[in-house]
Simulated assay, not measured.
Amino acid sequence: MVKFRNAAAAFKALNGLICVYKPACVPIQQIQHTILTNLCRDLNVLPDRPHEKRVEIVGPTNAPMTVKLVPNYADNPLVCGPRYIKEDFRCSWATHLGLFTSGVLLLGINQGTKLTYLINTARLTRAYKIHGQLGKATDTYFWNGKTVEKSTYGHVTREKIDKVVAHMQAAHQKTMFEMSGVHMESQTMFDLAAQGLIRPANNNLPVIYGIKCVYFNSPNITLEIQAINEYDKYLWTIIHDLGVQLKTSAHCTGVQCIRQGKFDLDIALLRKHWQLEYIIDNMDQCRRLMEEHSLILQPKSAILSV
């Protein structure tokens, strides 16, 4: 872990991207506030520059006067306040996570805010684990909504879930290629698919690249989804639609983002590690990860024109 001898050196190192774990039911603004507050607290504890001195000239004006340096109380933190405050930092997020969504969150600090903008425009794919429960449907498709329907779910098996999920994935992939405006069996379509993931030109259009069931213990179910341009309410509807196709009802109980691009849970900082030393180490780890995979410099994949 990096150790700094003074606060100025530590402040200069706080320029980059960090990966933190966002807890559920905690807004991103509160996470920003907590991290910046902790950084200010840790920086103000480190040794700071010497206090400025004030030149004082004393003695009678009709005789040789004495010049001396005395402490300048205007530079004392007890008078002017802490050296570092939250307004000294800039902080932004790369992609927004909903209030009830937990998981990987990318934040840029100071110069790192430019990286968050580049990541946002690059539109990296994200992977989620969506937890649901069979037997009940709500008006919001989430657990905190009003119950609108209850149904039996004893006929639901893992084989039926896998069959429906495979059908949903095929339908999404077919729609993704159809929106390209190119014939499905043409050479142009093959070349377009060979370039990589086909991203929609419209940032508001969700696209699902993969979906599978990773856990089932009736009535609880967990889906793993790779998507782009998604949002929390759209992910809730996937569980609801799954319940409809299984001839029952279902609602979402939780959403966890497990990966954004190459950033996964292994490098995400927990709340107890939102401290200066861990943040700077994580910033260096994210920088090496980006350099290793050329996340920002790599050419963009194929774009759907819709």
Rank of each mutant, 00 (worst) to 15 (best):
P47F: 07
H273P: 01
A227I: 04
A268K: 04
T140S: 15
Q285H: 12
A10K: 02
D264Q: 09
I109R: 10
F11R: 00
L106N: 02
V20C: 05
E291S: 10
Q133L: 05
P50T: 04
K233I: 00
A268L: 09
G243N: 02
G243T: 00
I28A: 12
E292R: 07
P64H: 12
E224L: 01
R5P: 03
L39M: 13
Q32V: 01
Y117H: 13
Q298K: 13
A8P: 09
V148Q: 01
L17Y: 00
P47L: 11
V182Q: 01
T37G: 15
C80A: 10
E87C: 08
G210Q: 13
Q275Y: 00
R41T: 01
N62E: 06
E292I: 04
Q245K: 13
H251N: 12
I57L: 12
V58N: 14
Y215N: 04
T138M: 07
K160M: 15
P71L: 07
N38D: 06
K86D: 09
I18W: 13
Q30A: 14
S186A: 08
M189R: 02
R288D: 14
Y117Q: 10
R83Y: 05
I238V: 07
G154W: 07
H131S: 11
F89A: 09
M179C: 12
T157C: 02
N72E: 11
A122N: 14
